[in-house]
Amino acid sequence: MGKLKETILYSRLKSKDREAFIEMYDLYADKIYRFIFFKIGNEEEAKDLTSSVFLKAWNYININRLKDYDSLKSLVYKIARNAVIDYYRAASVQNNLPLDDELARRIPSESEESALESRAEIFSDFELVRKKMAELKDEYREIIILRFIEDLSIGEIAKVVDKSKGNVRVLTYRALKALKDLIEQDNKFKQ
């Protein structure tokens, strides 16, 4: 989505345009759901949180008078991230992710690339990655999701996680390396 389109959408949201809300929802629902799902690993909770994120975004855009708006995308992700933090805080379920089970169940059923899944070898790699993802520390996992799954730019990620671009670059590098190391270790262990 182009910057112009996004900006127009933001302005329409600001003027309480319900059509714009629907557009925003359709545009980001999947991404936000995915982001939250990978972070908390629970499908139902992810759905609830996703709904609350859009409601919060709507209220934030309409009520907030600060001029700190820069990108609707970053804003929505940031709200999602905060929602997850709040969720952790409330439930005190940090680092207790049932990510593996959920992913194992979801991915095969939803994947459009069934041909890919059918190939046992590749599928095992796929599983390996998501398993190791769950082992990563929260900070790294977040960066991996945003950068390599959601394809956010470094700048956008910096806004979402409230860090400098340089910081995000370093984190991205470390996160990817950590994930790779985990996978390598696993491979060595298997051998």
Partner: peptide, 9 residues
């Protein structure tokens, strides 16, 4: 990692 995009509600 990119293929995780297929995860959708």
């Amino acid at each position: 990692l990119h293929s995780f995009k297929d995860v959708k509600p």
